[in-house]
Design a protein around this nucleic acid. Structure first.
Lengths: 297, 297
DNA sequence: GCAAAAGTGTTCCATGTACACCCATGT
DNA sequence: ACATGGGTGTACATGGAACACTTTTGC
């Protein structure tokens, strides 16, 4: 083909290839792992489910393209998700229409107690990951492989990064966090040991204070917690909605399918201390032990 | 831009983007980590070093493109390297001539005691990784970032996969393997503990037998070892060369810059048992412990 | 009061770390 | 013979697994 043997190609000679991005966005809802999918309306693969995605624009970074396509097709805005590149897929036959190389992304988002949004989504829905793993659902293109790789990555990254916090609202309790690990790994973890693990990891910071070390100043702490749970369940204040949408393309808002419909929160017992994800971005000083021979149901 | 909100694009409307592959290929030589680079002859970045790479052909898989470009530009044939996709880079400005999205690969290759090859390489050379990390060398495009990411990946994968064996010839001694870890991680590992770690990892299989448990049948084992070290240092037999090049595009052969020029092998002591990388492809049952507080020089 | 969650303490055990020590071989 | 690496034994420390047990809150 080329005999120069270097990068000395003529920029006009490039073969016709289209570049797209696709996003595998995960969320946890009611102790199950979900993924955001879109139902296709046209051929090829009409009726099948597909990852949200589309063309990279001429002057757009790959990361930006992923965030934009996700927002356009599902209404999930950039600030409420964590997105990271997964890898690229470019088999010649993966799109029957033409040569398309896609850069896949994976992400995690908390099912925020969000304002009701009119969703621009062209049929975006949360689908249970287990349905895909059991091949109960038909995915378009090679998206099944992408989802599989994304799942693998998510499960691995959970262990040695603070990724789990991205599945939670900005403030969360330790057991909410533990629930993330348990659903993604499909395991039970020892609550006591997990407690310690999180406490000694500087990546998570405590906001409120445990009610166990209480009796002293119940005032401010308890209020913080009440606020937190009110936010989760009470009706929405337009003032808050404005502040939540600020600094974002306000034509987009959280789609309703991402809202958490009720009590995946502590069924009884007491709301405990609050935590926020630390600054240390994603790395954990010591990994969360993956279950080895846990016998718990 | 698009208002459909699905993957229902017109395949003819795709923006003009070129897709290339680039390969960050590492090798170990004389206790140092090297990378294969090519010196550019033309603008942009004339005179700078770049990763081997080039266009993906219209009907070619990404993996195949990476292997082909590597072979074309450096003479390193597919069967002597391990290649894996790293990630993609597509900032709008990364190539001043036009929009180019590149799919980067990383790889490891053993500096085989290879037949002398006429190299088709347009100035391919092994460059010390330390020179790049210290920014002593100018890399074209965003290749410095790619090399950095590739290094990070290699160092991480060494820990929980049998990748290290890919830096070695098909048969190697345990201390040669240990040397891989030590140079890539820039650490010293305890020889005794490392010994055990490798032995209990099924990913590595013993070929010869330790001379320690010897006295019994020195015949076949010792011969095997002698062969191995002769292969490394003796002059080359044309018959062997033919078999080494079989099943490959025979117009390509191992370039001379990859040959190991002499004693990075046991300076004295005795040649020990031989090992080969197991079938379990790359996963290790238990990770190689990364040094924590090793005090050894 | 009871159930369920938060949180602490403690024991057991696997595994990594450090290091001493012997064996085999090439020069 | 001696230096150097292969290879084994072992004592110690760390940290995960398991589990008991107390405290707090919602119903």
């Amino acid at each position: 083909m080329r005999s120069d043997g270097g990068r000395d190609y003529n920029p006009r000679d490039y073969p016709p290839v289209a570049v797209t991005v696709d996003v595998a966005l995960f969320a946890i809802r009611r102790d199950e792992l979900y993924i955001v999918l879109i139902q296709r309306g046209v051929e090829p693969f009409a009726g099948a489910w597909a990852l949200p995605g589309g063309f990279v624009l001429p002057d757009e970074d790959l990361d930006a393209a992923a965030a934009r396509e996700l927002a356009e097709e599902t209404g999930v805005t950039e600030d409420s998700v964590y997105l990271e590149q997964l890898r690229s897929y470019g088999s010649p036959g993966r799109d029957p229409r033409m040569r398309v190389v896609t850069v896949a992304y994976w992400g995690a988002c908390s099912t925020l107690p969000a304002p009701l949004g009119r969703s621009d989504a062209a049929h975006a829905e949360l689908v249970r990951v287990s349905q895909i793993e059991e091949a109960d659902i038909e995915l378009a293109f090679d998206h099944e492989a992408i989802v599989g790789d994304a799942l693998e990555r998510v499960r691995a990254k959970l262990e040695y990064t603070a990724l789990a916090a991205r599945f939670c609202p900005p403030e969360f309790t330790i057991s909410e966090l533990r629930n993330v690990y348990e659903t993604v790994w499909n395991t039970k973890l020892d609550p006591g040991n997990f407690q310690r693990k999180v406490r000694e990891n500087r990546s998570f910071q405590q906001v409120g204070q445990s009610r166990l070390a209480a009796g002293a100043e119940p005032a401010s702490d308890v209020r913080a917690q009440q606020m937190r749970f009110e936010r989760a369940e009470a009706s929405w204040d337009p003032a808050d909605e404005a502040s939540a949408n600020d600094a974002m393309d306000s034509s987009l808002s959280q789609p309703e399918f991402l809202q958490d419909p009720g009590p995946a929160r502590p069924r009884s017992g007491r709301p405990a201390s609050l935590w926020i994800a630390g600054d240390s971005d994603l790395t954990l000083n010591s990994p969360i032990p993956r279950r080895r021979a846990t016998r718990k149901a």
